[in-house]
Structures are given as C-alpha cells and as structure tokens.
Simulated assay, not measured.
Amino acid sequence: MVHPKNEMISLDGGRLFVAVARQGSFVEAARRTGVPTSTVSRHIAELEEAIGVRLFQRTSRKVSLTSDGARLFERVGPLFDELSTALDAAADREEEPAGTLRVTAPVVTGASHVAPLLFEFSKAHPKVSVELELTNAIVDLVEDRFDLAFRIGPVEGADLVARRIWSFPYGLAASPRFVDDTLRGRTQITADELVQLPALVTSRRGAWRLRRKDGTRDDVRPSARILVNDPRVAVEGATRGLGIVCAPLEMLTARKNALTLLGVRGRTFEPREIFIVYPSRRLVPSRVRAAVDWFFRKSRRGGA
C-alpha cells in the first residue's frame, strides 16, 4: 500500500512516472517527454522517496511496475490524461470543431451506444463529418487513421490515451430446456462445471472473467461449442438450447422468456469496462477533444 509522507510531491514527478509506466523504459519516456534520462530517473527516485514505496522493478533488460506502482498508475494515469486534455483545450484557439472524425467501435456496443451519441454529436457540430466503422478487430489507430476508438478493457498500447466511459454488467444464461435437461433444473453451478459445459463464445482466446468473494479474479476458458464474434448471435444460439452463454446482462434480460439466468457458486461475473481511446500526442485536434468531452458528459447523464 502507498503511504504518502509529508514531502511535497511534484507534478513533474507524477507526469514522468506515468510516462515511464506507459513506455516501460526510462530512456523511451525521456525521448517522448523531451526530458533528459537522468532527470527522469531523479524525479522517479524523489517520488519513491516522497511516498515511501518502490514504484518500479529495474533490471538490465526492462523496467516494470511493482504492485504499489501498478495501483498508483491505475489511479493517476487517467488524471494526467484529463489534465493533458484540459491544457490542450486551453492552448487551442480554434472556435468550432471541424473536419472528419473517424471512429471505430465493437459491433454491438457501437450500434447500441456509440452510434446514437455520434448522431447527436454530429447534429451539435455541423462542421464535423463522422465516419463510424463497426468491427470487433483491434485496429491500429495511427496506421488506419482513426481519431477515436471504443474498446473493451484492459487497453494496451503505450501510445494510447484510454479513459473508462462505461461499465456493463455481465451474466450467464441458458435456455430453460438446457437447464432442465443438462443441469437437472439447477440454476447454480460450480466453477468446475462451468468449464465443462458446452458454451457459445465470442472470442477464440477470450476468457470469462469471474471474481471470488475475497476479491481475487478467475479467468475461466469455457468449452466452446459455438464460436461467433457477435454476442447477439451467441445469445440467440443459447435460446435454442445449444449451451451456456456469457453476455451483457441487459442483452440476457431482454430475452427473459427464452433464457434462464445462471449463477456460479462463490463467484460473480466481472463487468466489462469500455474505454474511449485516442492516440497520445501533444495537441489533440479540437474535433477529437470535443467528441471525448461529449461522450463523457452524455455517459455521466445516462445518455444512449
């Protein structure tokens, strides 16, 4: 646990800590921030001294976060992203956002949550043209020239700014007939049964994320009977008795007459966090910043 001391913690120290955490390298963090490597090292050492814990494990090959460092980064990373966005906004004198805003999002979330808010954004900013591509593939934002992406966390990429925007509860379900025939009427199963039952899954390498009562996490890899990259199709297959399905709770409850919700003893399903993501750069175009702010305002008010 991080125990702050009384020493003053500098803003530069925090900014450089975030840079090193993202880059996994003092040298690369120095290059990205334009600060000498020796200065980066000194600020990190001062920060560790000020808060009384070691933040990085350093070897001749790599730099990695300690558990204390990871907890600190999880809290302060988004704060520095917001500060950077605010400073860019103050520096940008463009009166009205304009140009083409290119956005990519997962198929289901994009259709149900992203698109409606983009339509509203387009009406509010008539000088901005919008291009929305719905795909479950992780695209390279810079290479494919996208301004924004919506992704299920955790988000990887040192050159990306990721800010959590939505959290969707997930659940487990099967058809009433499957419950009667395969589970013998039980709606509570064990974690061992979970990995053995036929399942409809949406990712070949994906895992279902569960959390124990003590807070530790289990990543369970189900026995895939059907693989399809659209959860709506997986849910439809489950209604036909083909197996169990893990999907957004709102999607399962919408089919309450055709599905029975299941529980896993001693476990709960982790919600899926959706992040709004954009390339990290010194100046963010006004159309991108306006869109990010728009989604944050709307999501906090329950929009879409």
Score class of each variant (00 low, 15 high):
Arg205Asp: 13
Phe56Leu: 13
Leu242Ile: 04
Pro154Ala: 02
Val179His: 04
Ala86Glu: 12
Pro198Met: 09
Leu16Asn: 04
Ala105Leu: 06
Met1Tyr: 03
Thr268Ser: 14
Ser203Gly: 08
Phe150Leu: 09
Ser286Thr: 11
Arg232His: 06
Glu96Cys: 09
Leu72Lys: 03
Phe178Asp: 03
Thr39Leu: 11
Ile44Met: 14
Glu7Ile: 06
Phe17Cys: 12
Lys127Asp: 12
Gly303Ser: 13
Ile274Val: 15
Ala98Lys: 14
Arg265Asn: 07
Glu49Gly: 12
Lys62Gly: 05
Leu87Gly: 00
Arg255Trp: 01
Leu101Thr: 10
Glu120Ile: 04
Ser299Gln: 12
Gly110Ala: 10
Ala105Gln: 02
Val20Pro: 08
His43Thr: 08
Ala304Ile: 06
Val233Arg: 11
Leu101Pro: 08
Arg61Gln: 13
Arg232Pro: 01
Gln23Thr: 11
Gly153Ile: 05
Ala290Asp: 03
Val76Ser: 09
Pro106Arg: 10
Val128Leu: 11
Gly24His: 08
Phe168Thr: 10
Arg71Met: 07
Ala258Cys: 01
Arg54Ile: 08
Gly34Leu: 11
Glu7Thr: 10
Gly77Leu: 11
Thr135Gly: 00
Thr239Pro: 04
Leu72Ser: 05
Val2Arg: 10
Arg163Phe: 01
Arg287Ile: 00
Leu172Phe: 01
Arg177Ala: 13
Leu47Trp: 09
Asp12Met: 15
Ala137Gly: 04
Arg75Pro: 01
Pro106His: 08
Leu132Gly: 05
Leu87Phe: 08
Val292Gln: 03
Leu197Ser: 07
Phe26Trp: 05
His125Thr: 12
Arg211Gln: 15
Met1Asn: 08
Val103Arg: 02
Ile51Ala: 04
Glu96Asn: 07
Arg186Gln: 13
Arg164Asn: 08
Glu96Met: 13
Thr85Lys: 13
Ser64Cys: 06
Ile189Thr: 03
Leu79Val: 15
Phe73Asn: 10
Arg151Val: 10
Gly241Tyr: 03
Leu242Cys: 01
Pro78Cys: 05
Asp92Glu: 08
